[in-house]
Design a protein around this nucleic acid. Sequence first.
DNA 1: CAGCTCATGTAAAAGCCTTTCACATGAGCT
DNA 2: AGCTCATGTGAAAGGCTTTTACATGAGCTG
Lengths: 246, 246
Amino acid sequence: MSWRKERGRAERGYHHGNLKEALLQAALGLIAEKGPGGFTFADAARMAGVSPAAPYRHFRDRDELLSSIAQRGFEQFEALLTQAWDDGRPDTVTAFERVGKAYLAFARNEPAYYSAMFESGLPVDLNPTLLAASERAFGIIRAAAERLAALAPPGVARPPAMMMALHIWSMSHGVASLFGRGDAARRKLPMSPEDLLEAQVLIYLRGLGFPTDRRPSGPKDPAAPPPVPPAGAPPGAPSGPWGTPK
Amino acid sequence: MSWRKERGRAERGYHHGNLKEALLQAALGLIAEKGPGGFTFADAARMAGVSPAAPYRHFRDRDELLSSIAQRGFEQFEALLTQAWDDGRPDTVTAFERVGKAYLAFARNEPAYYSAMFESGLPVDLNPTLLAASERAFGIIRAAAERLAALAPPGVARPPAMMMALHIWSMSHGVASLFGRGDAARRKLPMSPEDLLEAQVLIYLRGLGFPTDRRPSGPKDPAAPPPVPPAGAPPGAPSGPWGTPK
DNA sequence: CAGCTCATGTAAAAGCCTTTCACATGAGCT
DNA sequence: AGCTCATGTGAAAGGCTTTTACATGAGCTG
């Protein structure tokens, strides 16, 4: 019984009572501090106060535990994005940018989930449940892109909504992966990841013909957005979210 | 000696002759097929035909071998990007897009290097040599962005070159990470990663005021690029690299 | 060419992890 | 009270990592 930690008062008997959940939590903690590769099944068991063989009653193997975590991650991710999108309120562009920020916030606040989802090397495509969860999350981004596309200034060349969604996903994921976490593993940045992503998305949207002068917070998109100013001569001289152009 | 594979003719004696290199190659192969987490020090030794302890004469530990691979990866990456950039010939935008393609090509053709560099969880920031190599590679992108920035239509709000470089890096990395490899671990895409990235970069550049109608391959940027057409009404009606807008 | 020395390998062992299997417990039902 | 099945335990097999003492032989020295 050497593996059994001295547990406070709540002495539990032979049965743990909620081992599966305890293992998930333990794993989450371990992944957060040592990465998806660093976490060990045995460690999680130890942390939950059970023998190294106990986890096998709840997960086929180490990978299945990892998958479960990724699964949960995608679910929470979807919930977060849904909330951020808020069905496009108060206006599509604002909501859209909020989604980008939510993406980064998730990567930063839930590094364990994030790495299980995107950096654990799990074969997402081979796990139907996981794949479905992943696609539901992406679905939010896609829905947002759909709305954005419908709103895009007519007459301007633009990609299908699906492609826009993939673009946004790539940008968010790229920023999050490269600079998004406090890890020592990540690179230093002369600005916040949020600012980096926001500027990027704004430029991208402008490339699609959207007006991107800092909107004065008043709702203004519902029906027809104001005509697009020529890209070469924006109304307010040099300005934008990135300070003065050097 | 059970670990010693039946070696063809070239019977080698007690000393291997080039173990360090052999280990790097072996590891590269293993990483390519099983990911950076799947590779084991012992496997590499076995593959090189030496005892499990032999590698320790050349690498402090497993991580150092991984770092060496990442290091080499960054060097090859830098070389590839340099070549793709070709000092901005024949024109800045064309060369710029070539760099993006080279990024994807590297991720696809050298998945082992790529994952060692970006997905192995190595603390890049804590390894000066590695960090330097990484920054030299990024330096190419930054130099390209620098040139692009100098070329951007004046009068339009635009970010500092450094930020543009980070944007480009993020886009490339995002696309490469999410869709760039044939792995079962990656997602399916309704188009090629190259097309996805190219469209994305073009939209981004248009957002910066660059003309992005498919240039007819003739060099045309050296001094002053043609005036930017209004974003809302491009010269050639709806068109672009992404097919017909639905 | 004998002799030395040091880089490079080997063997063996400790310690940790994963996974399996037979067996123990006890929660819930009859 | 007695059964049964889910949930844990122990023990053991098989790998991997890393360390340590020892073996080899390549290359230099005289």
